[in-house]
Design a binder for these strands. Structure first.
Lengths: 231, 231
DNA sequence: GTAGATTAAAAAATCGATTATCTTGTCTAA
DNA sequence: TTAGACAAGATAATCGATTTTTTAATCTAC
């Protein structure tokens, strides 16, 4: 089965023009940064990156600049690029913001979503459930998980809200995906995903939001544990 | 009097490293884009920009990439950079998001702000009131206005919330600052600024939020009018 | 005339090399 | 010993030129 089937919910934000070397590096680096392939606080050796991503200096620097504006890198005066440090405070901040913004988006999505959305949602949930988490170091599951949450809030009606949520997810995942593999509470999370779909289809905004709060809270606990083990 | 006195509230976000050509261009271009110095939808002629900002190709492209990630430009596959189009829908989206996020931030700021904040707030409001709106094409007033709103929400406790608010302000100003000069309802806005400070000092979160809603709504009406006149 | 192919000019993206700045190790003087 | 100055090497930022792609004008076949 072709996993790269187009799903309705498209990412919102600075994805950049596909096809250029610069955007290829941007996507790849973004994935690596979110997936914890770099150490927080680490200074990036540009020449090493050139080799790693098989790209010239100019497109690489352009990608790094975009990532810095996006918040996945920090740039220091004449001192190149760094992976941002992690902190308990920031994790709390990000989780709190996710609660507010995804809750808001979910309520709006439930108010606006049409039957096409319902179908997308069921499909996304199904794919996620079926996903083999051991495959490809969990990348496949991660992708479908992102896609599920994207779909959930997609018809909220605000491009900017979606954009901010996307950004917060990336930031959150820097914590959640610290260390070796996925946590083992997957079953619990999957159950929540399933129930979220149920409540969305029933258009029960209040209950859905409460469950979403709980879901984010559970993810937060995972992320916090990983962060504390990591320090 | 030196207007570049350091005020407590610093901008949050992808300001980039000061001192490099790239960041100088970023700041300058950002100001020009927010201030309506470019036509929405316009394609940027890179060579013209090189001359305009007296900078080489590489730092210019790096700045453009950062602005694209920030949302003040869009980049199309092999087709360079464009100033994003304006639309009624997006204006409504931005205004709605401002209501939600600045309201939230203001409530938190009122809960957290200390006496230093109170002093900063009074100072920022005073400067804004004293500002000569005819000076420097209103740039001086714009700067102090931005600074006032920054100060108002500064102690909200969330770096990400501040960042998103900053971004929304920039986007909003693309509409509000369309066309020739400032609107004439300045007195009314100034009165609201004054009252906002009053309510903040009294720690009346509920009333402050309501006033903030009204304030944003008034700004929205200005922006909408300008947008409609502009189309 | 018009749709589609062709090609010359323009523009975008990238590369290789240069310049400016920082970092690190060493030396000197107190 | 240690603080500060200095120099050499490493790294970041920028420039000028090349390559690739798009755009727009022209041509050809129908």
């Amino acid at each position: 089965m072709n996993n790269s089937l187009p799903t309705s919910a498209k990412p919102v934000g600075p994805v950049g023009p596909a096809g250029t070397a610069s955007s290829r590096v941007f996507d790849h680096l973004r994935k690596d940064l979110v997936g914890g392939r770099f150490v927080a606080g680490e200074k990036l050796a540009i020449n090493a990156l050139k080799e790693r991503y098989q790209v010239g200096l100019s497109p690489l620097r352009e990608a790094l600049n975009r990532l810095a504006a996006y918040g996945l890198l920090v740039q220091e005066n004449q001192r190149g690029f760094r992976v941002p440090k992690l902190s308990r405070d920031e994790l709390d901040d990000i989780a709190q913001m996710r609660l507010e913004m995804e809750g808001m988006a979910l309520e709006r999505a439930i108010a606006n979503g049409d039957s096409l959305w319902e179908a997308d949602l069921l499909a996304a949930a199904h794919r996620l459930k079926r996903a083999d988490i051991t495959l490809d170091k969990g990348e496949e599951w991660e992708h479908l998980h992102t896609q599920f949450h994207r779909t959930l809030v997609a018809p909220c009606g605000s491009v900017w809200l979606l954009r901010f949520i996307e950004q917060l997810h990336d930031q959150f995942d820097r914590y959640r995906r610290l260390g070796p593999k996925m946590p083992t509470i997957r079953q619990e999370l999957d159950e929540q995903h399933h129930q979220l779909v149920e409540l969305a289809l029933q258009r029960d905004a209040k209950a859905a939001r409460e469950l979403m709060d709980d879901h984010i809270h559970k993810s937060y606990e995972v992320a916090l544990k990983r962060y504390q083990e990591h320090v």
